[in-house]
Amino acid sequence: MDAPDLSRVQLHVVSGKGGTGKSTVAAALALALASEGRHVLVCEVEGRQGIARMFDVDPLPYAERRIATGLTGDGTPGTVHALHIDPEAALLEYLALYYRLGRAGRALDRFGVIEFATTIAPGVRDVLLTGKVYEAVQRNSRNKGAQQYDAVVLDAPPTGRITQFLNVSDELAGLAKVGPVRTQADTMMTLFRSPRTAVHLVTVLEEMPVQETADGIAQLRAAGLPVGAVVVNRVRPRDLDEDHLAAALAGRLDRQVLAADLEAGGVLPTPSLLDGLVTEAHDHAERRALEDAQRALVADFGLPSVELPRLPGGVDLGGLYDLAATLKEQGLG
């Protein structure tokens, strides 16, 4: 597929099945976007402080903090700021900005009213979380002196909940048909359904994550939400060429050639070692065949897709920059 056209996108929503590495992809995408002087905010809403751990900084408060410098491009690199969005703190800020209930809002928090409201009405909780993201994209005069961002990246809930999370207007239908909260939800939907937003879905080349990605795409499209790119994460290196893979899968590897290679490397080619290598090669070829079948299904989605390699040492800050560079090379950044 062609590289994704992100020229109009300001809000990048990153979702994926749990365990596929969506938070890692969100962090790497923020670094990729923060190049050549661009300033990016990466937000998380699930309370896990994953962004802080990946960037090796202290746990994030409900405040925008600069945590990294973006990729070095042709010009001066930009910055990455981060925000951990808490629904109770978001409601207090909402009350202060729109109703000037600073001290009164804090009193409500002490009485537990805010926790009660966000617990019995999950739709309200999502409005608060997405509302803060919306405010970061669409800064206005109510939030004077706030940092202006060229892009916002949201480390969003998993694929199974992403449509419900973003489709706040429908989620509030049974709770608030009129009033300021409903008005805010409807206003946010104009952004979420516009070309200024893209929902990127992260998967790995396994059956369940790919199927959940397909289901997520269908649900997002049914709700009128724009799907961006599919990010195939943790792709294994191609250690064998196609001919050797076919031979390994069919159990036709030449043991004499294997033995000669081992001897050339100073290793004694015992029968048990050769048996083990043949079995391991067969398992590798079988796994690769399954991965190729899933890659074909991803291609059938008809969406731009990018691939990120599996990092053998795990993902540290240096690894994040490597992944960011790969995303940028493939047009996602």
Rank of each mutant, 00 (worst) to 15 (best):
A146R: 06
I162T: 13
D58S: 12
M1S: 14
A89L: 12
E206H: 02
R66D: 12
A293D: 07
L245A: 01
G313E: 15
L225G: 10
R48E: 15
V278L: 10
P226S: 03
G47S: 13
Y62G: 03
A281P: 04
A89D: 14
T183G: 11
A136K: 12
H12Q: 14
D56W: 04
P4L: 11
R221G: 03
G131P: 14
A30Q: 01
E135Q: 13
T69I: 15
D58K: 10
R193P: 02
L29F: 07
E36P: 03
A198P: 12
Y321M: 06
E329P: 02
A27E: 08
D254T: 07
A146W: 01
F165R: 12
A246R: 05
P312L: 08
G78M: 05
D254A: 13
R193F: 03
E307M: 08
L303S: 02
H39Q: 10
S194F: 09
Q164H: 15
L172A: 04
S272C: 01
A176C: 09
L175P: 04
F55K: 08
A27G: 02
A259V: 06
N233T: 07
V137G: 10
E242I: 12
L253A: 12
Q219I: 00
G112M: 06
A259P: 06
P77D: 09
L101H: 13
